[in-house]
Design a binder for these strands. Structure first.
Length: 364
DNA sequence: TAGGCCATCTGGTCCT
DNA sequence: AGGACCAGATGGCCTA
């Protein structure tokens, strides 16, 4: 049938129109996308609508072709029975019912509806994936995580949070990042590490040297975990570590680093100039709680590509008692799935109490 | 240009 | 019969 499609010049325009690879439309789309990406997206949607529109015309042509195919099949059956015609093997199985034009029309209509449903289903799936992107630790509008990376990061994130809740201890940031980046590609690792303002190359190298184990504060780990100063830290709003309410907290979520949050902490342990002890896990509770989704100003998007929030944590934990996030992601005895069911996580995520609980925990 | 990612179409399977 | 779900195929786009 495909051969027929491509070999029959009279059907070519229909096929091109349906397939979307007509030269004119393609070059036009490409040009539009180059000129304006948004326009490109709009064109894409328009194209889909057009597709729906001309599906009707297309179905007619397809129906004719299908009818021809059916006639061909019947002709073969009449001629050869079990024999093969040339190189084409004879079809076996129950004889097909004759495809009347009405049946063909219905069949095509079903197929169109099924395609439409499938598109909708995939769009819903992608929409859900977009929502997931917003609540995993590294969210960027400009550099979206791929689907598979989003799922991997989400899994790691759930695991990390589960471990925190299960153990009641806070991990050091390196462990936390390594847990988040487990199984992720290098670009995504860089992205996540960038969100955390870590030198990912260093920590990855260290990770390899340590054979997958996370270096503790007393190890030979020499990298400063926070080599970069947030460009916005110098602003007054970022230097303040006092966050009287959740709104302020959300506002700070995009410029906060350990340093910015710990800068105002009375405890000398939070001195960021040296890596002296375990640091608090950067808990990302953006998405539902972040201002990013509400503030759509261009300046906001420009400056806050990545969302990360590091709540201030106590320093009560002794060094070397960080979470043990092994290379398999299964260390620590209990798997995250058994610790924090998906349902619970979502119940918490949907409501501010999760944020409050976690915050309360880390502020004790 | 190869490879990754993605959207879409399509046919098959299972279920209602 | 029809819908949901799935996986394979295909082609477009983008990037290293």
């Amino acid at each position: 049938m495909l051969t027929r499609l491509f070999s029959d010049p009279s059907l070519l325009p229909e096929v091109q129109k349906y397939s979307g690879w007509a030269e004119d439309s393609e070059s036009e789309d490409t040009k539009a996308k180059e000129d304006d990406p948004d326009r490109g997206c709009a064109l894409k949607d328009e194209k889909m609508e057009e597709e729906d529109e001309f599906l009707e015309d297309d179905s007619r042509a397809a129906s004719e072709m299908a009818a021809e195919d059916e006639e061909d099949d019947e002709g073969e059956e009449d001629e050869g029975g079990e024999e093969t015609e040339g190189d084409r093997p004879k079809k076996r199985g129950p004889k097909k019912r004759k495809m009347t034009p009405a049946r063909i029309e219905r069949s095509k209509l079903r197929r169109q509806k099924a395609n439409s449903r499938e598109r909708t289903r995939m769009h819903d799936l992608n929409s859900a994936l977009d929502n997931l992107r917003k609540v995993v630790p590294c969210y960027s509008k400009t550099q979206k995580l791929s689907k598979i990376e989003t799922l991997r990061l989400a899994k790691n994130y759930i695991w990390a949070l589960s471990e925190i809740l299960r153990s009641g201890k806070r991990p050091d940031v390196v462990s936390y990042v390594q847990t988040l980046c487990k199984g992720l590609s290098q670009p995504t690792t860089n992205l996540v590490a960038g969100c955390l303002q870590l030198n990912s190359r260093n920590f990855l190298t260290e990770q390899c040297q340590e054979g997958g184990r996370f270096p503790g504060p007393n190890s030979s780990f020499s990298m400063h975990p926070y080599p970069y100063q947030c460009s916005r830290l110098s602003s007054p709003q970022c230097q303040s570590s006092s966050m009287p309410n959740s709104h302020t907290l959300r506002t700070h979520a995009y410029c906060s680093t350990y340093e910015s949050l710990y800068a105002g902490n009375a405890s000398p342990e939070y001195n960021s100039s040296e890596y002296e002890g375990p640091l608090s896990p950067p808990l990302c509770v953006n998405g539902n709680f972040s201002v990013k989704q509400q503030d759509s100003s261009p300046d906001h998007d420009k400056n806050f590509h990545y969302s990360m929030h590091y709540p201030a944590l106590p320093s009560s934990r002794p060094p070397g008692h960080n979470l043990v996030f092994g290379s398999t992601g299964m260390r620590g005895g209990v798997h995250s799935e058994n610790v924090l069911p998906y349902h619970d996580m979502h119940m918490h995520h949907d409501r501010p109490p999760m944020y409050e609980e976690l915050n309360a925990f880390f502020h004790n």
